[in-house]
Amino acid sequence: MVEDILLESLRQAGYLLSTILIPFATLIVGRKVLKEKKSTGRYNIVRLLTFGIFLCFALMSFLEFLVELSLSPLLNELFGFNIESINLYSILIGTMVSLGLCLVFYANRWEPLYFVSFFIFGGMVIFYYLTGFDAWLETYIQIAGIISLIFIYFTSFRVRDNGALGLGIFFTLAFSTLVIEISYVSQIMIISYNVFILILSLGYFRIFKEEVIS
């Protein structure tokens, strides 16, 4: 009984933190993007992509919170909560992993591959609405997620970029919550990635003192 209450409290705390902290972190990153645009006159694509990933995550956390509150059966149906078929949840996760891949390709200057993830994922969504076929969605999300994570770590060490490394750690924590089946560990992970995203967005995460590229 006590265990259940503790677990439920952790779960609620996790949802609440995600709903507040992730949009907050998104706002901070968004502000940085606009500030840089003002000072340099052009958008920093890496920051813009990071902002896109954060925005998707924030939107997902907010919708997840609304679904938990069971406000509308239609929203629950649209949200879906799985990556096996096309729904709001899988579209947001798919966009996140696609942006992650795009970030990797951009950081490595692999120009012909810049938009490949969007072509694949966008094609998959359009294809679903035309034919109803979405059997490859889960595989795409898993493969693209793993590839983008590996390459984000690889790129972050290669270019000694704190932002990329932070993003890698954040996503490792976030994705591990989907894999770990022990509820307590999973809930603690959720709380920890929320705290981490706040540290990252405020700019306190500085493993590399000297970066090769900013």
Binding site: E111, F119, G123, F127, T131
Partner: peptide, 18 residues
């Protein structure tokens, strides 16, 4: 348009599956 070089392959692939 170097950045779009992968588009023909993906588009043809989806159309073939279609």
């Amino acid at each position: 348009l170097t950045k779009l070089y992968t588009l023909p392959f993906i588009l043809s692939f989806y159309l073939m599956i279609g």
